[in-house]
Design a protein around this nucleic acid. Structure first.
Lengths: 221, 221
DNA sequence: ATTTGTTAATGGTCCATCCAATTACCTAGA
DNA sequence: TCTAGGTAATTGGATGGACCATTAACAAAT
């Protein structure tokens, strides 16, 4: 039943009946329209809310999310929890994709993208606490993702980053930020001047460096 | 509330209180333990069921999934629905990751992996209908993912594949399978003999080939 | 025109049932 | 003793109704 309802709501979205940011009919009304109980409908809506597809506010209503921002956050958390995904695998995945995205960014970055990259570097220079530093780090990488122009990778790897950074927050007090900052500047320059191969290489070194900081016994190769 | 309940259930899983495949307490009991109404608990359980974390069977009970298999399916569907992700981006993502995974597979594939690859090729040779062919195609790529030893990529790209193939089923009647089969054999050989660079190259050509079959005006580069 | 108080709408939660599928158990028959 | 069949208990699925807290919309008073 829930799956069926989700499917119907999907249909409303796909058909454009509900535009991004628009309000859904009230639960009571929608339930009647679908011919189900409100409790059943609420299960479907809750699934979609947790996934980030829509948001509900008591006293106001239900709104279709303007962006697909956080859809993958919870699922990836579960993946990591259930499959016990190792940091090794997370880093390997990053190593596989992020250098390539940096190269794409060097080919496609707009002025706006460059500004975002600059700001992320500034934030990191100004950061004092460990949390600020990690936030700035995440901002930089996200800016690279965005500049690459590939939204799938953008969304996917924001989730992976968030997960990684969460686990890093604990031990980050003793981690220096000199190296990351140096790499970020390198990557920025390479992207600005459109040197794709250089951006790819710098990103690869940056991630390898970050990984060796986290793993006491870095895996070879 | 729902989020809080999910968090608590997550805790039960993380602590090992509920092992993969094991049964949860009955809803009525669990609701009492959490101090909430059954309807509220059911929302949380439903979210996790749709995500693939657990499965419920009427008259029987609620079980923690043995595998994290399908957790990303629904979310990626929503991503594609809401963000209107283009096939171009899907293929670009594949191009970014799959060649690299093929290279990893060449370095790590076990005898079991090789057997799975062989079987996928056999299935494709024997396939008569369009659906069989696409299933076999998917099996081959999944086998490569598995052989790469990276579970994140494995799960992630299974979802992407499933999505792509679904949209391909419609127009697949007029697509030949000679080329894909040729590439699959090439990739298989390269992996079998541990030639990583060759596997990477063949996979790249294979995906490019598939893309050009689907897009009437292939995007350059 | 602005503020304030009131009212209606809406999501959040709870309760009490009933239904349908499944399982577990027990009894009757071989 | 063992099997088969049926019965009762368990469990998830769904419903209807009720109440609460929050919000938004509106009207009234200043």
């Amino acid at each position: 039943m829930t799956a069926k309802l989700i499917s119907r709501i999907k249909g409303m979205i796909a058909s454009g009946e509900i535009a991004p940011g628009a309000k859904f009919p009230p639960e009571r009304e929608l339930a009647k329209e679908f011919g189900v109980n409100r409790a059943s409908l609420r299960q479907a809506l809750k699934v979609m809310e947790i996934m980030g597809v829509l948001s509900q506010r008591v006293g106001d209503g239900t709104y279709l999310s303007a962006t697909a921002e956080s859809i993958l956050n919870e699922p990836i958390d579960f993946l990591i929890l259930l499959d016990d995904l190792s940091q090794h695998e997370l880093f390997e995945t990053r190593l596989m994709v992020e250098p390539e995205l940096a190269a794409r960014a060097a080919e496609r970055a707009t002025a706006e993208d460059m500004s975002a990259l600059r700001n992320a570097i500034f934030s990191m220079e100004r950061s004092r606490t460990a949390k600020d530093r990690l936030d700035a780090d995440m901002s930089f990488h996200e800016a690279v993702f965005r500049a690459s122009g590939n939204r799938i990778c953008h969304l996917l790897f924001k989730s992976i980053h968030r997960t990684l950074l969460t686990s890093m927050t604990q031990l980050s007090d003793r981690v220096s930020m000199d190296q990351p900052l140096k790499f970020h500047r390198e990557i920025y320059s390479a992207i600005r001047e459109g040197r794709a191969q250089e951006a790819r290489q710098a990103m690869m070194e940056h991630i390898n460096d970050a990984r060796s900081l986290l793993t006491s016994t870095p895996r070879k190769r």
